[in-house]
């Protein structure tokens, strides 16, 4: 099947994508799940909720219905501060310090695993 929106003959292909809303919208939360003990929380998706308690409840229902997690964090989406490589040259430069990487050093094979 397709999720492309079929355009009927004679219909405009442009559809509206925004509209003015009257009421207030529940804020958005980012959800992080620790899948099992010993590994980090990983971003798994987002959802809407009026407050942190509800966001946690919702996260449990929405993202861990199949027992996917042992621990869940929710963070208000507008509290996430991001650093995007495209917008920040110095970040890219930091990545160029190859001497930070273990692979930058040749260790003779006879030394063994290091």
């Amino acid at each position: 099947m397709t999720y492309e929106v079929p355009v009927a003959p004679g219909e405009s292909a442009d559809i509206e994508e925004t509209i003015q809303l009257d009421g207030e919208v529940w804020p958005m939360w980012e959800v992080f799940v620790r899948a099992r003990r010993g590994i980090s929380h990983v971003h798994i998706g987002s959802l809407h909720a009026p407050d942190a308690e509800t966001a946690l409840e919702n996260a449990r229902d929405v993202y861990t219905r199949r027992g996917e997690g042992v621990s869940v964090w929710v963070v208000p989406s507008d509290q996430v501060h991001a650093f995007e490589p495209d917008a920040a040259e110095e970040y890219v430069e930091a990545n160029e310090k190859v001497y930070r990487l273990a692979t930058a050093y040749d260790i003779p094979e006879e030394v063994g695993q290091m």
């Binding site: 529940w26 959802l47 809407h48 909720a49 509800t54 409840e57 919702n58 229902d61 929405v62 219905r65």
Partner: peptide, 11 residues
């Protein structure tokens, strides 16, 4: 009233 509540009620 909301999708999230549909899911909770289902659970």
């Amino acid at each position: 009233p909301e999708l999230e509540i549909d899911i909770a009620v289902g659970n």
